[in-house]
Design a protein around this nucleic acid. Structure first.
Lengths: 113, 113
DNA sequence: TGCGTTACCTATGTTGTCTAGGTAATTACC
DNA sequence: GGTAATTACCTAGACAACATAGGTAACGCA
């Protein structure tokens, strides 16, 4: 139905952001590139989706932001995981594994049941 | 975050319904049970979610409905896949595999990258 | 000077899910 | 005979999230 490049699986963006930040603090633009590059172009986060998501996660206390300077001396807002964010990452990762396995299991059923 | 029983992964309900109907015509209530039982209680479709989804799929020409009688002589609306629905099932299944593999791949990355 | 990239942001529309109802017929139980 | 559970269908309203389409600004480079 959706033509062209793939976007996100709804409901997976938060956990992907948390996962990305578990490797260290990073700014929004970097998160977007991280997801896109490591997913081999299969997933892409539009900026109009990413920034609101970062703000929600910050509002919910799962990540926290701090203005800083990147490698090239440019100012950027660096996000990092809070303790709650780490716990949430673990919980949501488990949740994803359980549920995606269930979906894949159903889709793998052969026509004869 | 979400307590108790799991619900759907957003965006997967349509393809699961199509998959279910690929085993033969079935009424809405049966689709709901099929998903719930085969997913070992990991996924559950509430009726308030299922019926609107069936109506959307019918509106989009992916399934078609016909009133009939079930095993126990009770009247029920049986849904079956159209040709377009079958093609859509294949396309969406591929799409799911590609994207869920990407998500799982990211979540499986070890902390050191 | 102008383009591309990095970096951030918001607004609006649309869709989909969640919750919470409601109807009606049949079956099972007390 | 009454009532509860099950099967089977449906809608309405709220909310969250994604898609799209904008916009700002600073920097590097040709």
């Amino acid at each position: 139905m959706t033509k062209g490049r793939d976007k996100m699986i709804p409901g997976t963006l938060n956990v992907l952001i948390l996962k990305c930040l578990s490797h260290g603090a990073l700014h929004g633009y970097g998160v977007s590139r991280w997801i896109h590059e490591r997913a081999d172009d299969v997933l892409r986060v539009e900026e109009g989706v990413l920034y609101p998501a970062l703000h929600r996660l910050e509002r919910d206390g799962l990540i926290e932001a701090e203005w800083g300077i990147n490698d090239t001396g440019r100012r950027a807002k660096f996000y990092s995981l809070t303790a709650r964010g780490e716990r949430e990452l673990d919980a949501e990762t488990d949740r994803w594994r359980r549920r995606s396995a269930a979906v894949s299991g159903l889709l793998d059923l052969s026509p004869g049941n």
